[in-house]
Amino acid sequence: MRAYVAFTKKELTEYTRNFKLFLAIALFALLGIMNPLTAKFLPDLLANFMPEGITILIAEPTNLDSWIQFFKNGTQTGLFIIVILLSGMMAKEYEKGTLINMVTKGLPRRTILYSKFTGALLLWTVSYWLCFLITLGYTLYYFPDGTTENLALSVISLYLFGILLIAVLLLGAVLFKNAYGPLLLTGAFLMVLFLWNLFPETAEWNPLVLASRNMDMLQGTLLLEELLKPLLMTGLVIASSLFTAVRLFNKTAL
């Protein structure tokens, strides 16, 4: 346990030294600010930039528009940022050979991977929930009359999908000793998830639901009972990715 805590602290220190923690916090905080501001002022901006004589009817923005921006930016930008920042989580260790001394001195290889996963998970957790809290605060300020009954379900679902991608990234980091292999594996994994939807008989198990139907959850048209299968599949993929990564890492030459 001491080795796990010590190596996890080392990972977090690395994130501060290479500015990944600062970048993640700054970018996600910016997204958190932009989400409600875009929802609030975009209709006015569109109206001002329209040519004279052309009128468009835009509904009055609501709190739902703010959360639409949150989930749009969370899936298209937030997850992309995290994947890019974490793609090289093992590359420098392989390149510099820093793991050799640790392993030869008795540090279990599985401890290294669990610490890597924990550090990445903490980076994602702090960034994501900071973005959420900022969006929530500004949304309550600009749209005080709005109601969001299933907000917890929708935001937790997207958060879990982020953990899924981190687990796949870690597996890719073990398979490929560079920063590009994990990106390619994660991209291929996402492609499989998109193709999965082409088969209606198994689509209800697709983890992609957690990141693609958040507004349906928020509006109550997709309930927790309907998410049990994709949630179970997400847990299985995370567990199997970590298990496979450990098994492969135990046989990998450092």
Rank of each mutant, 00 (worst) to 15 (best):
P36V: 03
F7Y: 13
R2H: 10
L85E: 01
F199Y: 06
T135G: 04
I68F: 15
M217E: 04
F28C: 11
T252K: 12
A203M: 00
A152G: 09
F71I: 12
L99I: 11
M50V: 08
V246Y: 01
F80D: 11
Y141T: 13
A239F: 12
L190H: 01
M34D: 10
L37S: 10
E93P: 01
R109W: 07
C131N: 15
L30Y: 14
L185D: 00
T62P: 07
K10S: 10
L170V: 13
L169C: 13
W129L: 13
L86A: 11
E225K: 14
L113P: 02
L224P: 06
L151S: 04
E225H: 12
T16G: 01
M102H: 06
L85S: 01
V237H: 01
G172W: 12
T75K: 15
T202E: 00
M102W: 02
E60M: 11
E204Q: 09
I112C: 02
N35A: 05
A188V: 15
E11I: 00
L222E: 05
T13D: 05
I100Q: 11
T104M: 09
Y180L: 15
L99A: 13
I238D: 02
L30P: 02
T55A: 15
A3D: 14
L222K: 10
T98A: 09
F70D: 02
G181T: 01
K40C: 02
D44Q: 10
G32L: 02
K92V: 10
Y4A: 01
G106N: 05
P230D: 04
G53A: 12
A253K: 10
V209W: 08
L37Y: 05
K229R: 06
I163R: 03
L45T: 01
V83F: 09
T244D: 06
T13E: 06
L45F: 14
Y4K: 02
V174D: 01
A29K: 03
G119C: 02
T244N: 04
F41H: 06
F49H: 10
F176V: 12
F22M: 13
L86T: 03
G187A: 08
M90D: 04
G220F: 14
F194A: 08
A211L: 04
F71N: 07
K10Q: 09
L57T: 13
K96T: 15
I54R: 10
S66D: 09
I166Y: 00
S212D: 04
F22E: 12
L123D: 01
L21A: 03
A3F: 04
A253I: 09
L153G: 11
F161T: 05
Q76H: 09
P200S: 00
N48G: 02
V192R: 02
L184Q: 09
I163S: 08
S212C: 00
K9V: 06
K96R: 08
L184R: 07
L46A: 03
R109A: 06
I33F: 15
A179W: 15
L30V: 14
G88H: 01
E52K: 15
E201S: 07
F19D: 08
